[in-house]
């Protein structure tokens, strides 16, 4: 009958490491994890990850529970045809861009590129919205991507005009 203790010790070097003298933990108790324990650990990990995923999925619904505020973003006379103006909506952390097209129509979009969140800028010469980080291009009329890596359109800001004043009233994603 073979003796288990007679087999050559593969971990002798590790066992005799100098630091083990300073931290005398029994080897058997040190690194012994059974398959059962590992399966339980993974199952608990699976539960935790699924829970975290559900919580994260609920965040947008909780944050967007109420209607967005109506905010004055500028005056119509201050935006000349073909030019743009920056503003923030619905919070101070959301940069947006207001553009008066050459036709005279006002449009506004989130300034955050849908590729990797760089700020898009209005290229007046080319009449396009341009992301300088990865050369993404969006149309001014619809905010639709037509060149470069972005695949989703820019969120459009709904506008209302009262006299000369322009108000942002919502976001269309």
């Amino acid at each position: 009958m073979p003796d288990d203790h007679a087999t050559p010790c593969l971990n002798c070097k590790k066992r005799n490491a100098r630091w083990r003298e300073d931290f005398p933990v029994e080897w058997e108790n040190d690194e012994y994890i059974t398959r059962r324990e590992m399966v339980k650990f993974l199952a608990l990990g699976s539960l935790t990850i699924a829970g975290a995923n559900f919580i994260l999925a609920g965040i947008p619904h909780v944050l967007q529970s109420g209607p967005l505020p109506k905010t004055k973003i500028g005056t119509a006379s201050s935006v000349a045809a073909g030019s743009s103006q920056l503003f923030r909506y619905p919070t101070n952390d959301d940069p947006c861009i207001l553009i008066r097209q050459t036709s005279g129509e006002l449009v506004a979009y989130s300034q955050v590129c849908t590729h990797l969140s760089c700020a898009v800028i209005h290229d007046q010469k080319e009449n396009t919205l341009f992301c300088p980080c990865h050369h993404g291009y969006f149309t001014v009329a619809e905010g639709r991507p037509y060149a470069g890596p972005p695949t989703r359109p820019l969120p459009r800001i709904r506008l209302e005009q009262e006299g000369d004043e322009i108000f942002a009233v919502g976001v269309e994603v």
Partner: peptide, 17 residues
């Protein structure tokens, strides 16, 4: 979530569940 996309997290959560 960082891209302000509302649909994907829900499907990912259902798949994870």
């Amino acid at each position: 979530l960082l891209r302000h996309e509302a649909g994907t997290p829900l499907y990912a959560a259902i798949a994870s569940g």
